[in-house]
Design a protein around this nucleic acid. Sequence first.
DNA 1: TCCCAAATTTCGGCATGCCGAAATAATACG
DNA 2: CGTATTATTTCGGCATGCCGAAATTTGGGA
Lengths: 218, 218
Amino acid sequence: MNGSTTVEDYVKTIYGHTEWQPESITPSALAARMGLAASSVTEMVKKLAASGLVTHVPYGAITLTDQGRALALRMVRRHRLIETWLVESFGYGWDEVHDEAEVLEHALSDRMLDAISRQLGQPTRDPHGDPIPAADGTVRLPDAVLLSQASDGHRGAVVRISDRNPELLRWLDEHAVRLDAPIEVIERRPFGGALAVLVDGHPLDLGSDAAAAIWLAA
Amino acid sequence: MNGSTTVEDYVKTIYGHTEWQPESITPSALAARMGLAASSVTEMVKKLAASGLVTHVPYGAITLTDQGRALALRMVRRHRLIETWLVESFGYGWDEVHDEAEVLEHALSDRMLDAISRQLGQPTRDPHGDPIPAADGTVRLPDAVLLSQASDGHRGAVVRISDRNPELLRWLDEHAVRLDAPIEVIERRPFGGALAVLVDGHPLDLGSDAAAAIWLAA
DNA sequence: TCCCAAATTTCGGCATGCCGAAATAATACG
DNA sequence: CGTATTATTTCGGCATGCCGAAATTTGGGA
Ligand SMILES: [Mn+2]
Ligand SMILES: [Mn+2]
Ligand SMILES: [Mn+2]
Ligand SMILES: [Mn+2]
């Protein structure tokens, strides 16, 4: 049926692609994100479609059905709650939680998840600012601008930082770029150069990778 | 190599068979314990032997090697620590922890396990009285007598109760048969009849299944 | 000692997921 | 518009684990 660890990771990855800029994902992009061969993705997508979790016309993009989206949100909730838990209750750094959550999201029972959520006071965002879907599957994305696309002079608190690159997370943390830190865009250097910003009033130069990982309040 | 979830459960089950009455396990007994066909066990045992976790001569019994025993103890430690954690930190009943632990034992990282053990004060026995092996693989089994084999007049505290049957655990709990409760054997009724005991001074009749699940301090 | 029942192993098969190579479809561009 | 590149799918294969049926081994009783 549905619900294997593998299926859970597929729908979660598909959802993740559309969360911040909604456009359905292609098989090759999905394969790249999951670190799998394209042929593996083709086959699994066929099964996901057969069990009603995605729609997919051959050679076309992949889109979650309502059912698929519901499963994805369930997994995203699990993942982010667990990340939060690891930071709050086990002293993990925000750069250390992802891999552990990737495993535990498939293993904890609903009962434990509920207990954890309660113990943490029903948090609504994870250590990286990602919104934690409610148990009923509702999510509210903060109004956010990607720092790399913010205009000069834009001011706003950091509302989200991509958790994709742990090294970047460590570097940002060392330079006081954390959730809720106020940032002002000073100057955008041309030709893909650094972005000059003020973090909490202190000047900092951010490379394009860093700037593409940070969202500011709109 | 070694270390898949499946392999972990096999060595744990083999170890479990020998913990309280050391005699190596036969393929059919192992199959029965694991709920698998005998043919499946034959094949897996061959792989376990090939990777040095058990010794096995064809048509003979199965014995853990030192390496297999080390892995088993690692898993048993995980299982029992997790059961303890579920009771202490998540309000589970002692009859509710086994299945959840059976999954989590394969999923939690060593780092989390260490943190949990520290949070619980490095416990040395689980909710059923089973000893929790230390991180270095040492275990100390309490001196215990199976209640069904204790002689009339024997007195001793409950040091262990088998966690195999959750219904039995609930029944025992309702009748105040808990860890450390003092028990005195009054009378052994003949022909496999009930065993009359005093629990904390109160009379109670135990059937043979119950009596075979309870260990008293020797 | 011989034979039989029970235990064990072997064998072919199935399910899940993955891969690389080959085939095919879509698209881009000259 | 035709072709060349790129994306996608198909196909055969592999690894892990499981099963039932058939074959084999063992140990006990006659
Ligand atoms: Mn995962
Ligand atoms: Mn996160
Ligand atoms: Mn248990
Ligand atoms: Mn298990």
